[in-house]
Computed example of a mutant assay.
Amino acid sequence: MTYLSRVRINPLRAASRTLLANPRALHGAVTAGVPDITPGDRILWRLDTDHPRRPTLLVLTPSKPDWTHIVEQAGWPDAEGEHYAVRDYSPLLAQLAVGREFAFRLKASPVQNTSKPTKTSPHRTKTAAELHHRSYRMAHRTAAQQLTWFLERTQRWGFTIPEARTDSAAPGLEPSAPDTPAEAQQPAREARITDRSRSTFTKPGTRSPVTLTTATFEGRLRITDPGLLQAALLGGIGPSKAYGCGLLTLAPLSTGHH
C-alpha cells in the first residue's frame, strides 16, 4: 500500500537549516522514516516552500512511515496540532480516468543528453572518456527550455496540458494574418514555472560537487492514459529523484476551473 505524507518543518531550528539547504541530508532523513526498505522500493519526496515560515515536506512511500524523528529534530515537537499527516494513496489512484482534469505540481530536473556539451569540467570529461560514455547529461537552465522539456514529455506520462483559457479578442482586434513565426503561433498551455533553483552539494566519499538545477511546474492536466499516469505518480518523473525531484502531486481543480 502506498502512502502520501505531509510533514511540517520549523525553519528556525538548527537541524532544519541543514535539511533545507542540503537535498542529500533531507534524503537521509526521509529514508530514515521508512522501515523495511527493500531493493526496488521507490521513495519520492518534495520540499514545498510556498510559505517560507512553514515549509512542507511531502513524501510518497511504499509502506506506512513514521516521521517522529523529523518532528523532534526539525519541527515543533511540543506544539499543539498535527505535526504530520499520512494518507492512503489508493483513493486518488482510483480517481484516475481518461478525460479527468486535475491541478498539478511537479518539481523536476529538466535535462538533455548531448554528445557535445557546451560546458563541462575537466574531471567530467576525463570520467566520460574513461568510461566510454557517448553522451553527457546536461541541465536545461532557461525557463523556456525547462517548460519545453516538460510539455514535450507529458504524453509519455499519461496526460496532456490543455490550452489556456483566454477571452476572445474584441471585434476588429482579431489578428488579420498569420505573420508570426510558427513557434509563436503555438497555443499557450495551462502550465507555468513557479520556482527555479540551482544548488550545489557533495556526496560522502567524493570530492566532486553535485549541481542540481530544478524547476517547479504547476497548472492543469487532462488524463489521456490512466496506466501511464499511475506509473508516473508512483515511479516519479525525470532524474534526481533522491534529491527531491520527480514527485507529481494532483489536487481537485479550484472553483475557478470549470
Rank of each mutant, 00 (worst) to 15 (best):
P175M: 00
D48F: 07
E130D: 10
W149P: 04
A184F: 08
R220N: 00
F217Q: 03
L92R: 07
A79T: 09
Q146S: 08
Q95K: 10
F104I: 01
T18R: 15
K107S: 14
P110F: 08
R53G: 13
P209Q: 05
R153D: 01
G246H: 05
H123A: 14
G235S: 01
H83G: 08
P23S: 01
Q230F: 07
R13D: 07
R192A: 14
S16K: 03
R156W: 09
I193N: 01
A188S: 09
A231K: 14
T154Y: 01
S208Q: 15
A232E: 04
Y136W: 12
S135C: 10
F159D: 00
T160H: 04
N22M: 00
A251K: 12
R54F: 11
I193H: 01
A191T: 04
L253M: 08
R156N: 08
P65V: 05
L147P: 02
W149I: 01
L92F: 07
I223V: 15
A139R: 09
V71T: 14
E72L: 15
D225H: 09
T114P: 02
T202W: 14
L57K: 01
R100C: 03
A129I: 06
T206I: 03
F104H: 02
Q230L: 05
A85W: 11
R207I: 07
G236E: 03
L58M: 05
S90D: 15
R53T: 11
L131Y: 13
